[in-house]
Design a protein around this nucleic acid. Structure first.
Lengths: 186, 186, 186, 186
DNA sequence: GATGAATGAGGGTTCATTCAT
DNA sequence: GATGAATGAACCCTCATTCAT
C-alpha cells in the first residue's frame, strides 16, 4: 500500500504550497498575533491566492492547529537533539543551560509564538494533546540523565527562566543559569 | 423588599460601570481569547450598550491594556500578600509552595489569562512596563528571605511549574513542589 | 416694549457664546466641508461644551443655515460697501474690478465656503431666499451705475471669474479683468 | 419573452456593476450632497450589496473622485461637442449662448453637482487637476474662434450666468444672454 | 439655564467564506 | 484542481441627540 498521496493526474506546483502557507502562518502570528492572523494577510505574505486558503484548509482554526503543532514538534525535536548527543551527566547539565540561554528560545519571535501557542492550546483539545506530547518527550530526554522529579523541575525551569528572561531588561547570564540548574539537579 | 431599582434598560447612573466593563473584559478574554474579545461581546456580557465601549475607552487596545494591567497588579498583590505575612524562612518556603500549588494560579482561567497577557504585552510597551513592575515586586517580596539569584530562580519556578501543571494530566503535588523549592532555596 | 431678549435673571457669559459658535461653524466648514462639520468638532473649535450645541441650536441644519445666512449677508454688505462709496461710473467700474481681483473672494477659504453655501442652499429653501436677496442687493448696488442687463452680466462675471481664478494656476490680472469688465459695461 | 435573467439577489456576473455604482453615486450626491453620500445609501440605490462598495473602491473618497472626474469629463466633452461642429464665428457665438441657456447646465441636478464638485475639488488635489484640464479644454475649444482673453471671459461667463440663472426666479432669456456674449466677444 | 454622561443608530471597513469558472 | 470575484455578517468607531442633574 502506498501512503495516502493526492490522486495522480494534474499536480502542478502544489506540494510546497501547502507547507509554505503553514510556515508563513507562524510568521504572521509572530508578527500580528492570533488575533491578527487573517486569511488575507497570510495569503499575501505567502504570495498565494486568497482562494487557496480555504481550499487547502478547512478554516483558520485548522490552519493554526497545524502550524502550532509543527511548531511544537520542531521545538521538541530541537530540545531532544540538544540532549541526545551528550554522553555524560555533566554534558547534560551543560545542554540544559544551553537550551535556556541559547538562541532558540531567546529569540523574541519564538517566545511570542509560545505564548500564542499556550493560549491557543488552552482552547483546543488537539493542541493540548500535542503539548502533552511535547512535555512528555522533553521529560523523556531529560530522563536519560535525571530522575523523574528532577526532569520535571528542569523542564519547568526552562519554561520559567525563558519567559522571565524575555521580559527582564537584564536577563540571567549563563553562569547564573548554571548555578540554578545545578541546585535543582542535586 | 429590595430598594426600588431603576427600570432595566433605562439606568443612567451606574458608577461602577467602567470597572465592571474592565472586569468583564478579562472574563471574555479568558473565554474567547484576545482574538475573540470584541466590543460587542464584552458589552453583551457586561449588559451595557455598545456605545459605552468607546465612550469609556479609547479603543479595544486601551481596554485590554487596562484589564491586563489590573490583572497583573492583582496577581502581584496576591503574591506579595502570601509572602508578607510570614515570619520565618521556613514559612516563606511554605508560602512559595502555596503559591505554586495554590488556588490562584491553579485556576485554568487565570493561567489562560496569563498566556494572553504575555502575548499581548509582547506587542504593547505599556504592558511590558507593567510586567517588569510585577516581576520586580515579586522578587522584592522574595528578597526578604532569599538572596537575589534565588529569588529570581524561585520566581521562574513559580511561572514554569504553574504552566506545566496546567498542561499536565498529573500535576505535581505539594510534596514534590516543596522538594524542588528546597533544592533551589539552597 | 423691549426687544425680545432672554429673560433677565441669571445671564452669565452667554451673549457672545451663541455668535461665536456660528462664526466657528464657518471656519470648520471651510476646513472640513459641510460633510465634516459635526457638533463635536465645532464645539471643540469653539471651546464650548458639547451640550451647548443642541441647547442653542435645534440641529446642524439650523446652525448651518444661520452660519451661511450670516456669510451671505456679510459678503453682500462688503459688495455694496465697495460700490456705495463711488461717485462716478469710472469709479464704479474700478470697484467691480477691485471686487473680482480683491482680497475678499481671492481667499481660498471664502471661495470654498461659497461652494459649500451654494450646495447647501440648493437643498434649503430658506437659504435660497437669502441668496436671492444677496443677488438682488448686488444688482441694486450695480444698478446705480449700470442698466439692469449690464448689472446682471457684471454680477455673473464676478461669480465666474472669481471661481475660475481660484482654480487657474495663472489667474487673470487686474488689467485683463478691467478689459473684460469694460466690454460688458459697454 | 425576455431572455432568462438570473434570479435577483444571486447574480454573480455583473460587468457594468462598477460603472453603475459610479453613476449612481452622482445621483445620490445630487440628491443628498457629498455629506449624505454614504456607502449604504449608494449601495441601496444601485441595488448592490454593501460589501461591493469597498470591494470595488478603496473608500468613499476614491469613489467620489472617480464620479466627479467622470462628471467633469462628460461636461467637458459636451462643451466641446457644442463648439466643434460649428463652422463660423457667428455659429460659435450661438453655440456659447446655447451652452449657457441650454439643457445641460440648466438642469438643477447638474448645477448642484457642480457646486459639490467645486467644494470637493478644493480639498482634493487630483480633482483640481481634473478641473484645470476641464478649463483648459473649454478654452481650447473656444480658442478656435476667439482670442485667449475672450475665451477665458466667455468661459467665466458660462459659469457665472449658469449659476445665477439657477438661483434667479427669472433667468436671463436667450436674447439677453446673446447680447452679453456679443459684448464680451468684441 | 446649562451641561456632562450616556446611548443607539448608522458610519466605513474587514473578514471568512462561497461559487462560477 | 484551483482561483478570483463577490457577499453579508460582523467589526470598531463616531455621531446627533437625550436627560438627569
Amino acid at each position: 500500500m502506498s501512503p495516502p498521496s493526492p490522486p495522480p493526474g494534474k499536480r502542478r506546483t502544489d506540494p510546497e504550497r501547502r507547507q509554505r502557507i503553514i510556515d508563513v502562518t507562524l510568521e504572521v502570528v509572530a508578527q500580528h498575533g492570533v488575533a491578527g492572523a487573517t486569511h488575507r494577510r497570510i495569503a499575501a505574505a505567502a504570495d498565494v491566492p486568497l482562494g487557496s486558503m480555504t481550499y487547502h484548509f478547512a478554516g483558520m482554526d485548522e490552519l493554526l492547529a497545524l502550524a502550532f503543532t509543527q511548531l511544537a514538534q520542531k521545538a521538541s525535536a530541537e530540545f531532544r537533539a540538544g540532549l541526545d548527543r551528550v554522553e555524560t551527566r555533566e554534558e547534560a547539565i551543560a545542554a540544559v543551560v544551553d537550551i535556556i540561554a541559547g538562541d532558540v528560545w531567546a529569540q523574541p519571535a519564538t517566545l511570542l509564538l509560545s505564548y500564542e501557542l499556550y493560549a491557543f492550546a488552552a482552547r483546543n483539545p488537539d493542541l493540548q494533546a500535542v503539548m502533552r506530547g511535547w512535555m512528555a518527550a522533553s521529560r523523556q530526554a531529560l530522563g536519560r540523565w535525571f530522575d523523574p522529579l528532577t526532569a520535571r523541575a528542569l523542564d519547568a525551569l526552562v519554561e520559567g527562566i525563558g519567559i522571565h528572561n524575555s521580559i527582564d531588561r537584564e536577563p540571567l547570564d549563563r553562569a547564573a543559569i548554571e548555578e540554578i540548574v545545578r541546585r535543582v539537579a542535586t
